[in-house]
Amino acid sequence: MKNLLALNWKMNKTPSEAMAWGTELIAALSLGEAELAVMAPAIDLQGLAWTLRESGVALGGQDVSQHVSGAYTGEISAAMLKDVGAKYAVVGHSERREYHRETDAVVAAKAAQAQAGGLTPIVCVGEGLDVRERGEQVPYTLAQLRGSLAGVGTDIVIAYEPVWAIGTGKTATAEDAEELAAAIRAELRTLYGEAADNIRILYGGSVKPDNIASICAKPNVNGALVGGASLKVADVVGMNDALK
Rank of each mutant, 00 (worst) to 15 (best):
P139H: 04
D104Q: 04
G126E: 04
L119C: 12
I156Q: 01
S77L: 01
V64N: 01
G85W: 01
A111F: 05
A18G: 03
T168S: 10
G85F: 03
G128M: 04
D197I: 09
N222M: 13
G92S: 04
L7D: 03
E17P: 02
V107E: 04
V57F: 00
A105W: 06
S148E: 02
I215M: 02
S94D: 02
E102R: 04
G56W: 04
V221N: 00
R96H: 12
D155N: 15
L188N: 05
E136S: 10
K87R: 15
G56S: 07
Q115W: 07
T120G: 10
N211R: 07
I158D: 03
L129C: 11
K2M: 14
V233N: 01
N198G: 15
G135V: 08
M239E: 04
E133C: 09
L142I: 07
G60C: 05
A143T: 15
A58L: 13
R189S: 11
V125W: 00
K218V: 14
L119K: 10
H100A: 11
V163K: 03
A86R: 06
V90G: 06
Y160M: 02
V64D: 03
E187R: 11
E136G: 04
K218D: 12
A40T: 08
D241K: 14
A71K: 10
L36R: 03
A217S: 15
G153M: 08
I199D: 00
A143G: 15
V236M: 10
A196Q: 07
P15K: 04
K110F: 10
I212D: 01
A40R: 00
I156L: 05
